[in-house]
Nucleic acid binder design. Structure first.
Length: 274
DNA sequence: ATGTCCTCTCTTAGAGGA
């Protein structure tokens, strides 16, 4: 099963790129961020024609998240990150698909540091941690996919020393991410590629993509029960080189089938497939 | 400071955000 996350930077402005990549890769589940559209302008019919059912949480001009699933409809279980009724930013949506809980998130950018936007980012991460703790306690196989707006370590930045005062690399935010790992979540890309320089984002400025001056800020966190199913993980970096493309590249994981019960009773007849 | 590209509006240029 191929699961992807992709910050599209405007789902309508990038629709051609998105559809081209979907038809090329045929992912089973896709988490989208930065829709930059209201709910009524989400390109539902175009995605349906491409074979994808969707749920989405839009917002005028900014933010916005969606979950797509091929040949099956995502069952929405939550929209909006809990913990602050006054927060109107569309940065979180959660669904059940094929026995998995899929959370699609778009963490705040937080720049400039210091300032209210940075404080909002830290508060958002606190709420996120509280929710992910509950998700772990629920015991369902769960994937947290999206744009975390944090480079977890020096290995995830082309030039770490230049980013120490940036909200994407401030120590407080790296610690917030580390706390998620401490809860038990597994960083899928790092699990498969412990020492490789892997980027998911290249700035539009300064010819960043051609210079490979990138950042790894789009992540998959897996609940511990799913981690053993991880077969592969990577980034479709070439998409960043396409015309009219997002500043992020699609990032993906491949999961093997769910394990059956550990010890099947030998004498018993096998049950019919569900 | 700058670079680029999205979206929206007090709209065809400039502002805000990333």
């Amino acid at each position: 099963m191929l699961i992807a996350t992709y910050n599209v930077n405007g789902v309508n402005g990038r629709l051609d790129v998105l559809l081209r990549w979907l038809s090329l890769r045929q992912p089973d589940i896709v988490c989208l961020q930065e829709l930059k559209t209201t709910d009524d302008r989400f390109p539902e019919s175009e995605l349906e024609s491409a074979g994808y059912h969707a749920i989405w949480h839009g917002q005028k001009s900014w933010n916005g998240v969606a979950i797509l699933a091929r040949d099956t409809a995502p069952i929405e279980v939550r929209r909006g990150l809990p913990g602050d009724e006054s927060d109107v930013q569309s940065r979180y949506i959660e669904a059940e698909i094929a026995g998995l809980t899929i959370a699609c998130l778009y963490a705040p950018n937080g720049n400039p540091w210091p300032g209210p936007k940075f404080e909002y980012k830290l508060a958002w991460y606190k709420r996120f941690q509280a929710h992910t703790k509950k998700l772990l306690a629920a015991g369902q196989p769960t994937i947290l996919a999206g744009d975390y707006n944090v480079m977890p370590t020096d290995l995830d930045v082309y030039k770490p020393e230049r980013w120490t005062e940036d909200a994407l690399f401030r120590i407080e935010v790296r610690e917030a991410y580390a706390k998620l790992l401490k809860q038990g979540w597994v960083d899928a890309i790092r699990a498969r590629h412990p020492t490789a320089r892997i980027y998911t984002f290249w700035d539009y400025f300064r010819n960043a993509y051609a210079r490979n001056a990138g950042l790894r800020i789009d992540h998959f966190l897996l609940s511990p029960d799913i981690a053993p199913r991880l077969r592969a993980a990577g980034v479709d970096g070439e998409v960043r080189g396409w015309e009219k493309t997002s500043d992020h590249a699609p990032t993906w994981i491949e999961l093997g089938p769910a394990k059956k019960a550990a010890k099947p009773a030998p004498a018993k007849k096998q049950r019919a497939k569900r």
